[in-house]
């Protein structure tokens, strides 16, 4: 008997998402079990079965999420642009008022 990890695509074009696993003696049986367990209500557009031993796993946080500040890589770190735009607008309005007042 082998363990097969099951990936399901719920809609055409969407990513394959891991949904669970089945135990079966061979590929044909594994496919049937996966269909019966993970797509009884037409949930699957496509299924992938991958032998568990083929999966390479890593969860080490030092490897995946090292404690380094990476906020400078995120779009949200640049929200300051909103404030800068406001200041620029204010600056232009001030100049316009001065020009009007002076003229």
């Amino acid at each position: 008997m082998h363990v097969w990890e099951v990936f399901r695509q719920e809609q055409e074009g969407e990513p394959m998402v891991h949904v669970g696993s089945v135990v079966a003696p061979d590929r044909a049986r594994a496919l049937e079990y996966a269909r019966d367990i993970y797509s009884r209500r037409y949930e699957a557009y496509r299924l992938w079965l991958v032998p568990r031993e083929a999966v390479v796993e890593v969860t080490d946080p030092d490897f995946l999420q090292p404690p380094i500040d990476r906020t400078y890589r995120m779009g949200v770190a640049y929200r300051v642009t909103v404030e800068k735009r406001r200041q620029i607008k204010e600056m232009f309005e001030k100049v316009a008022r001065e020009v009007q007042g002076g003229g």
Binding site: Y72, R73, M74, G75, A77, Y78, V80, T81, K84, R85, Q87, I88, M91
Partner: peptide, 17 residues
Amino acid sequence: EAFHLKHGEDIVLTAVM
């Protein structure tokens, strides 16, 4: 790319100010 855009815009805004 959202980060690239925002960072680029920030460079331009900073210089314009």
